[in-house]
Design a protein around this nucleic acid. Sequence first.
DNA 1: TAGCTTTTGTATCGATCATTATGAAATACT
DNA 2: AGTATTTCATAATGATCGATACAAAAGCTA
Lengths: 206, 206
Amino acid sequence: MKETESPSRKTGRPLSFDRKDVLEKAMLAFWGGGYETTSITDLTAAMGVTAPSLYAAFGNKQQLFLEAVRLYAGDHTVLEQTMAVAPTARDAVAQMLRGAAILYTGETTPPGCLLASSAATGSPDAAYVRDAVAAERRKVRNIVIRRIELDIAKGLMASHTCPATLADLTLAVTQGMSVLARDGADRARLLAIADAATTGWNLFKA
Amino acid sequence: MKETESPSRKTGRPLSFDRKDVLEKAMLAFWGGGYETTSITDLTAAMGVTAPSLYAAFGNKQQLFLEAVRLYAGDHTVLEQTMAVAPTARDAVAQMLRGAAILYTGETTPPGCLLASSAATGSPDAAYVRDAVAAERRKVRNIVIRRIELDIAKGLMASHTCPATLADLTLAVTQGMSVLARDGADRARLLAIADAATTGWNLFKA
DNA sequence: TAGCTTTTGTATCGATCATTATGAAATACT
DNA sequence: AGTATTTCATAATGATCGATACAAAAGCTA
């Protein structure tokens, strides 16, 4: 049952759980319940791990959440690859929005986006984790900006187009789709939003 | 100092606070901190009222929050009036988005939208309040839908336009702008998003 | 002024929060 | 086998959660 043991570890009782497996379960718990509103009791129940084991493996609640965010956002960077190979920035954003629509309505995952919903607000103590998820959003924004700048440099988009504004709009649509997914919107509705959001991009063609 | 006393009240020590005033302060506290992550201690500090007075005046935390949501959404319905007098649905939505951009970056209010951020996630105990804010979002959505249907009936918009999808997109942009406002986006950036979101509507003209 | 009603401030309730002390259990090395 | 090392389950830590019991204080009526 052991796995992913630390390199310095030599002897002692082996771990009774797979660290990556329980981390994914913790991510799903945070995804569905939020950072501050998901208690250690909730986490241990979802992970199938007792509290001392949780703290031994992940430090504390904040570090566990940050690892969960990295696991979640790591899946998001897969979209970055697909954006790079898209023929135009508009196609790239369309694919990204459609991917978000699908991700936010997965059957085995909570509705919505972990980055959008797990740390929307909170006490001052949780300011650090809010900054962490905001940093992940900023990464996505920068990816979109660079993709648009590429199209402008290629002459595919009008030179007066503001990449930052279109990236902001794209990010806003994704995070907003998360809210609608939380409210019960199904995949078809979210995909329709994604398509409607990108039709307007035809106006920015060079 | 007394005010807004209940009609059945005849005698007894008068209230030392203005109920509407402290309700607004509670709304601002929830707006900035969220429902579950704003404690009674936070609320009493923000309202300048002791806990027993809070419970006597508002029942409990949930009822206080629901009143705060009604106070907040009541301000939102002001936008409904302006949408009705706008020449086109596109202008109406543009004004609504610009109003949201301004509301989410007020100098005397927390950044973002109370409906978007105060109950994005939470424990199962708070499901009722999440449904309450979702219902407010649905109201806004229905207002937008009806405004679009009006333009379609007038022949101002293409008959194949899907009002529900455009309303979903509009709602997604507002809730997404709230996330960006929380991340520190200033009013100019949000206004740019609002304008960019409505430029695409030209494609739906009849 | 005496009596009644309601709000006030103080102090506290049990429950839950994140976190950990403690010792038994399980493996590796000698 | 014996010992060192690490994880295990149990249970408890102080702090904070939402919500109140209590009695003094403040007003109105008589």
